[in-house]
Simulated assay, not measured.
Amino acid sequence: MSLENQSASSSSNPSLYPLSETEHGFSFTTEQGATYRLDFTSDSDYLPDTPFADSVYSFSILPISGSFDRKDPRIEPTIVQALHIFFEADPKAILLYVCSTENGQERVRSRLFRQWFSRHQQGGYERFDFNYPDQGLYMSAIVRSDLPERWLIELTILQAVEQNK
Rank of each mutant, 00 (worst) to 15 (best):
F117A: 00
P63K: 05
E154Y: 10
A93G: 10
S11P: 06
S12G: 12
S42I: 06
L137S: 06
E106K: 05
I79N: 07
S20A: 09
H24W: 04
P77Q: 08
D69P: 03
S27Q: 07
L152V: 08
S27F: 01
Q81K: 12
F52K: 07
S7A: 11
Y125Q: 06
F113A: 08
D45N: 07
Q135C: 04
A34S: 06
D90G: 10
R111D: 07
E106S: 15
P73C: 13
S44I: 04
S15E: 14
L16I: 05
G33V: 02
Q105R: 15
T50W: 05
R119M: 10
F26S: 00
L19S: 01
V56F: 03
S44V: 04
V161Y: 10
F40L: 07
I79E: 12
Q81P: 08
F130T: 02
Y132G: 00
S65V: 06
S58E: 14
P63S: 09
R114E: 11
P73D: 13
L83G: 14
V98N: 13
I157T: 12
L96G: 02
S67E: 14
E162M: 13
E102V: 13
N5V: 07
L95N: 08
P133F: 04
T41A: 05
P14D: 03
A82S: 15
P133A: 05
M139A: 08
T41K: 09
G136W: 06
R107G: 04
L62I: 15
I153Q: 01
Q115P: 00
Q121N: 08
I94R: 04
Y46M: 02
Q6K: 09
D49V: 04
E106W: 03
A141I: 09
T50S: 07
S27I: 03
R37L: 10
P18W: 02
T22D: 02
C99M: 14
P77V: 09
E149V: 11
G124E: 10
F113P: 00
E162T: 14
D90L: 14
T50C: 03
I142K: 01
S140Y: 00
R127A: 05
G124V: 01
S7E: 08
L62P: 07
S140N: 10
G66Q: 07
A89N: 08
L95M: 15
S110Y: 05
R74P: 00
E4L: 09
Y46T: 01
W151A: 13
M1L: 10
P51R: 12
P48S: 13
M139P: 03
R109Y: 11
N131Y: 10
I64A: 11
E162K: 15
A34W: 04
S55L: 09
Q6R: 10
R150T: 01
S9N: 11
T78N: 06
Q159S: 14
R70Q: 12
D45G: 07
S9C: 07
L19Q: 01
L47F: 05
A53S: 14
I85F: 12
S65Y: 08
E126V: 07
F128E: 00
